[in-house]
Amino acid sequence: MSAILKVDNLSYNYDGNASRTANALKNVDFEVQAGEIVGIIGHTGSGKSTLVQQLNGLLKPTSGQVLLSGKDIWEKPKEIRKIRSQVGLVFQYPEYQLFEETVYADIAFGPKNMGLSGGELDHRVREICDLVGVPESFFERSPLDLSGGEKRRVAIAGVMAMQPKIIVFDEPFAGLDPIGRSQVLKMIQDYRAAYHATVLIVSHGMEDLAVLCDRILVLNDGELVLFDTVKKVFTQAELLRSIGLEIPIIARVFEEMRERGTEVPEDIFSVQDAVSFLNSFKQGGGARA
């Protein structure tokens, strides 16, 4: 496999001020393979949002590189805008940035800026709406008339309409209720499946990341402390807690059971896995052991 995205020894200081450490990045080094879903976790101020803004050239590294399919994204600084249609970035609360008069115009904005027009543009908008469940009845409505969850989906569809091969989400579930959250989760999975896209997600929702991701990248004070499979990351409760993070809630229940003398595994992260484990554990008379 070849890395679609490589972050090579990247450091970044705001205002070029090396003494200001909040949100800065220090020697961050990692590779993401095509088609992977990677979760990014870290406490507030750990540099997560700074990192994702490096990936599509909104911020420029103080030192080090971001390589897209082996090419430095800053090789031709004047063409940095082209990178933004290849690496789509969905900001926190993207619905605050809806500004067009209609839902259709808002979703068309990105692909239009890429130079699409006419039938091609129309096709692009309809294709993404179809995929992620934005109904045609929304097209002529004002984005402002939609509910919070609907606005979020429209805003995400606007980024997806550019069909970026890498799509990066900064807290896509924040502020959504359970229904809204599962709809956004499904959008992300559907997009990835349809376009074989690579996905990076910044989130505080360890439970969501545990079921969604292949690997998890852990940031602390601007440094990469861990980048490994979900299983290897979420079994390091002590390390995660020492940097203000937590393991998924089901893993915490199992941890509590171990503390009370019942030997259950550390790598159970979802309700579904917990139920199947506990069913066979009960049959085996496990609690007597």
Binding site: D177, P178, I249, V253, V275, L278
Partner: peptide, 20 residues
């Protein structure tokens, strides 16, 4: 009401459905 049980409670509810 469109609410979701916390995963802790959901685990217990699912176990009950499995005859626990």
């Amino acid at each position: 009401a469109g609410l979701e049980l916390p995963q802790t409670t959901e685990l217990l509810v699912e176990l009950k459905k499995n005859g626990w």
